[in-house]
Design a protein around this nucleic acid. Structure first.
Length: 406
RNA sequence: UGAUUCUAUUGC
């Protein structure tokens, strides 16, 4: 455990054993994984005090920690700092930044990093291109990703494509419902003996979402015939697919058949099923699943709570939802933006506007930014009560926050 | 001895 690691670290210091860069990097990396990037960054000072010079790996680890926490701008500052200190960023450093910027939809900045690395004499590698392609797909520019893909396949002087290069594009196309194109890319992979379970998982999900059960089942058979072992992804993708097609009984069947393959249902499976059961009015069954989770050693997470809280509120059971919220806090789970959103939405619909406004206040106090959906819920609630003045206040607040209704 | 990229869940 990380706690034990920290203890050992302190013991080292007490015994006069000096930690080296690697010791620090390990600690900082693990702090980042726990979301403690602030503490991790502070360790740079600790290193300086001991006269230890952070190297590329140390800086890169921190940059990754910042990026994974959605702080690409701060990560860029750290890049500047490391360069100032005379540390040369590696391909990995640049790749991490490209990934972080893409995740925040800063594609233009990601391209700038690409240019920067080339200027500094680095050759973008297959990870660089895979990362960029994924960024483009997630920002609605699958066609641009396709251009990169085609260039890579045509011009051998780029990089040698790998399984992920293909899968990024299959995923991008599949998410847009462009399944014929996705299947074509998949065929190209198979020709290269790049066949793998992830591609099948993506395609099975894509076909199910498109309502093409036959095609999805054909792929499932192929998976088995080819000797691939379906994994948790395969199951949760299918369970979700069937749930979304309102075929809950098939989803339940898959859920119970996982054990036969040595797999246990994951949080994804429980959460998906609970959401569907709530939506279909089977709150009691959802609640039973929720209870089952702890017994199955699959402890509910924020998503589970959000789902079941929404279900109980929708059914008009305010008391249970408040109890659940308390349970969640007691378990040490922090509410997320959707927890607040769920509460505001349901309270507004029930005409409990004071409750809704109080949740909004708590949300803002927790540093979350209310989105258009939340304002929409509140406005609808207020207008059904004819609270004209409040509506105007809220519209002003929205304008000030730059939130636009869609 | 330490750093990067693929597939799954919640409100409308």
């Amino acid at each position: 455990s990380f706690h034990r690691g920290k203890e050992l670290f302190n013991e080292m210091l007490e015994k006069g054993i000096s930690p080296n860069v690697v010791t620090y990097t390990c600690l900082m990396h693990n702090l980042c994984k726990l979301g403690q990037w602030k503490e991790a960054t502070a360790m740079l000072d600790g290193m300086a005090e001991r006269g230890i010079r952070p190297d590329v790996v140390a800086y890169t680890g921190l940059i990754d920690g910042l990026c994974k926490d959605g702080r690409a701008t701060e990560a860029m500052e750290l890049l500047t700092l490391m360069i100032e200190k005379g540390e040369e960023p590696s391909n990995i450093t640049y790749n991490i930044l490209i990934n972080g910027l893409c995740k925040e939809e800063l594609i233009t900045d990601a391209y700038k990093i690409l240019e920067m690395m080339i200027e500094k004499g680095k050759r973008p590698d297959v990870v660089t291109y895979n990362t960029l392609m994924k960024g483009l797909c997630n920002n609605g520019d699958v066609d641009e990703a396709m251009k990169f893909f085609n260039s890579i396949l045509k011009d051998k002087s780029y990089v040698e494509p790998d399984v992920m290069t293909f899968n990024m594009l299959i995923q991008g196309l599949s998410k847009e419902g462009r399944l014929d194109e996705a299947a074509k890319i998949h065929h190209k992979m198979v020709e290269r003996s790049f066949g793998n379970l992830v591609s099948y998982n993506i395609l099975i999900g894509g076909y199910l979402k498109a309502g093409n059960i036959d095609k999805a089942m054909e792929l499932w058979k192929q998976v088995l015939d080819l000797g691939f072992i379906p994994d948790s992804f395969t199951y949760s993708i299918m369970i979700d697919g069937f749930c979304k097609m309102h075929m809950v009984s098939i989803a339940k069947g898959l859920f119970s058949k996982m054990g036969a393959r040595g797999l246990s249902p994951t949080l994804f499976d429980y959460n998906t099923l609970m959401a569907t059961l709530c939506k279909e009015g089977s709150l009691e069954q959802a609640k039973r699943l929720f209870q089952e989770m702890s017994n199955a050693k699959c402890e509910p997470d924020v998503v589970s709570f959000n789902t079941i809280i929404d279900g109980t509120l929708k059914a008009g059971d305010c008391q249970s939802s408040k109890d659940l919220l308390m349970d969640m806090l007691q378990m040490g789970l922090a509410p997320d933006a959707l927890t607040f959103s769920t509460l505001i939405n349901r309270f507004s619909k029930r005409g409990q506007l004071d409750e809704a406004k109080s949740v909004l206040g708590r949300m803002v106090a927790c540093d979350f930014t209310p989105d258009a959906f939340i304002y929409d819920s509140l406005l609808k609630g207020l207008s059904s009560k004819g609270e004209t003045e409040e509506i105007i206040n809220l519209l002003h607040q929205m304008a000030a926050e730059g939130v636009v209704l869609d």
